[in-house]
Amino acid sequence: MLALFYIFIGIAIGVSFWQITRILNLRGVIATDEDNAKQGKYSLVFMAFLYAMMVYCLIFMNVLMLPESASIEGEHDDNLFNITFWLIGIVQFVMQFIIFYFTFKYKGNKNRKAKFYADSHKLEVIWTVTPAIVLAFLIGYGLWQWNDVMDLSDDKDAIVIEVYSQQFRWDARYAGDDNTLGLGNVNYIDINKLNTMGVDMSDPNSQDDKQVTELYLPKGRKIHFKFRSQDVLHSAYMPHFRAQMNCVPGMVTEFGFTPKFTTEEMRLNLEVIEKTNGINKIRMAKGEDPYEFDYLLLCNKICGASHYNMQMKITVVEQDEYDKWIAKRPTLASVIK
């Protein structure tokens, strides 16, 4: 690939110099009929290139995309996305055709006369009202979904988990048996006592909280995330669940979703298998270990030099497995003395 790159660079520089020397004897400055004819044709050639690329990407990059939503709330997100994408895709294909076809069709020459056509109230109304109606639908569906996702008020039986960010790592705190997180503030941080998340240990709610470095989530239970940051902005991005929220120092932000597939189930998902196979083909060629699908939480807000390597594994399991796992985690009261 690198050799290809140097060849391209070589060609680009070569062409540039060749053309620049030609400027000395080329005096043409205004398009003639011949230029118009030529450029009109190039416009069609370019259109062919554009369509080939658009179609190629749409078809062959499909396998690279994120698999179907792994959260129940994300289903409508995928739905809305598909509707929007079809819509803008059709408009894109039609509009680009018109633009470059008109450039070819109406290329100027001496025998042509342009049509004097300055205004049409009817047309202006049509292309104001049509987008307005389409947008009204998109806005309506989008807002319904937004309110559905962002409204966490009626999740009485959701599991509360705090996701805690710092340069450059993630931690998490489960709320324990009382399902209520103890208070937290950077002033309580005491590295020597292993209180790395700044939990107020005088708060009774803190005692049964459990600090972990990897997320385990039970399938089918609503998770109510609370996000904190101790230094700069971070963003907790969980692309498979269609979930993201910034972590802001000085305040607690929230997001919620319900995992739909366990990690094991997701590994058997056809889209995931296809994508994983593709990745492993590449990794094998480089002699790297094979990749196995896992849910991830990534940092998605520029946060410093190692921003590119700030991740946490998420494992979705069945409820009973989750219960066993969480029971084994030590409580903060037993860790922080």
């Binding site: 118009n36 008109f102 109406y106 100027g108 042509r112 056509y117 292309w127």
Partner: peptide
């Protein structure tokens, strides 16, 4: 969208000097 449509209608049946 109105702007984009208006540009395209301006091209329609023009005598395009492709400078």
């Amino acid at each position: 969208a109105v702007k984009a449509f208006n540009y395209i209608t301006t091209l329609w049946k023009g005598n395009l000097q492709l400078n």
